[in-house]
């Protein structure tokens, strides 16, 4: 009984949870979402650039894209965040002011773009070569064909993977706390952590965890939904039709259809 009591006090102390809840909601959750969303948007843009470079026929585009991807995917996120967050602090100060917040977003964006670039590349390369060929045969140049036809198809195919990536970014956004954020800039983890130190139990962190789950769990279900929708296609069920009907139809429109056809 003592043990159970202890457990509840440590992890589920309602009082400390209620005390920290408003802060988690108005400061922590907001910052987590801002950091994650901004990193994702920048990551999507950079990722598309890296992907397009990566499938280029020119090695002067392909090789830098490869190195970039290998670098940011191969390093631990925390290392990248610290190197960029502290390494460029002076430089950042002259543009953004003293807060490490923008640098944290940039570091997360770079990491995200390496993963997103690979996702985009795989998606674009999975599009049937015939699509590009059909565009080219119609007189479109490579860029047009990619932008109008190939890339949209590739991107649609990898939507589930992109949502997964967004979930990963939300979780990784907790790492920017290493850069020492201002009080108003703290994200979920940091708010929970500070409160945990003050109250002497882990309940605020548990509540922070619950907030993470409230955001990420629906997203994982969104992934499943996308996955099903795109894997099975959206084909509407239709009554069985006869190919012969089509033959009759065609006979009706084309005066040329009648006559010798053997």
């Amino acid at each position: 009984m003592d043990f159970l009591d202890n457990l509840v006090k440590t992890f589920f102390d309602v009082d400390s949870m209620l005390t920290v809840a408003p802060q988690l909601l108005t400061v922590g959750l907001v910052n987590t979402l801002v950091i994650s969303a901004a990193s994702t948007v920048i990551g999507l843009v950079l990722g598309m650039v890296v992907a397009v470079m990566g499938i280029s026929t020119s090695r002067w585009l392909r090789i830098p894209a490869r190195i970039y991807t290998d670098l940011f995917r191969g390093l631990p996120a925390i290392l990248t965040i610290l190197l960029i967050g502290q390494g460029f602090a002076k430089f950042s100060q002259s543009i953004f002011g003293p807060s490490p917040y923008p640098l944290g977003i940039i570091a997360l964006s770079l990491i995200a773009s390496a993963y997103i670039g690979e996702i985009f590349r795989a998606g674009i390369q999975s599009v049937d070569k015939g699509q590009l060929e059909a565009c080219r045969a119609l007189g479109m140049n490579y860029g047009r064909a990619m932008v109008l036809v190939v890339i949209p198809q590739g991107v649609r195919r990898v939507l589930p993977a992109l949502v997964n990536q967004f979930i990963a970014i939300i979780k990784d956004s907790s790492l920017v706390y290493f850069l020492g954020l201002l009080v108003s800039e703290r994200e979920l983890f940091r708010v929970g952590q500070d409160a945990a130190v003050n109250t002497g139990n882990l309940s605020p962190l548990v509540l922070a965890g619950i907030f993470y789950l409230i955001v990420t769990v629906p997203l994982t279900h969104l992934v499943n939904y996308f996955d099903q929708r795109f894997r099975t296609g959206r084909r509407r069920p239709t009554a069985p039709t006869s190919g012969l009907k089509e033959v009759t139809e065609l006979d009706a429109v084309s005066p040329l259809t009648t006559g010798s056809n053997t």
Partner: peptide
């Protein structure tokens, strides 16, 4: 059965 239509076209 659909070949003919395309060939005719």
């Amino acid at each position: 059965e659909l070949v003919k239509g395309v060939l005719t076209l």
